[in-house]
Amino acid sequence: MERRLKTRLLLVTPLIGFGILVFFLGIGFRLGEHNVHPSAMLNDPFPEFSSMSLLDDEPITREDLIGTFRLVNVWASWCTACIEEHDLLLELARSGTISIIGINYRDQAEEAKTWLYERGNPYETVVVDAKGEICVDLGVYGAPESFLVDPEGIIRAKQVGVLTRTAWMEEFQPWLEAQVEQY
């Protein structure tokens, strides 16, 4: 009798193993994209930098960036995905929703200027990062990438890849609205 019970237990072992596998895969799939690119820099201060402004060659540092809510957007003229989010950025800038600072990532100054001239410029200032050093300090994966920075210079939200309307509405805007009331 006991032996039969053991045989049965042995038979269901693969089934139990499969169950455990499904359980962990379930957790893994549910975590989704978000955990693929963990927000390492979230709630950390925006890193120090010192560079030039693309449009007027003036020196620019972290100090020029803080003091108000900013959307910091990493882009480049070679970046095709950046075109996808460009309309949204223009809309946000024109409606006065938020001040947008561009970080021109590994780009040629002339090509970047032409790109802005042809497509419209949503940026209040564009920081030149020709060598990608600021971006490494920011933990950037590649262009495009966007950060919501509060008046104290703390990173509050982050979007790796195209800033879609959904991402803006669901993650950036609610946080911004809640905070603006406080200030």
């Binding site: 060598k131 990608g132 490494v136 590649g142």
Partner: peptide
Amino acid sequence: DAPIAQDLRKT
């Protein structure tokens, strides 16, 4: 050869 990998090698 991704740009970010080149930057990180430099880093």
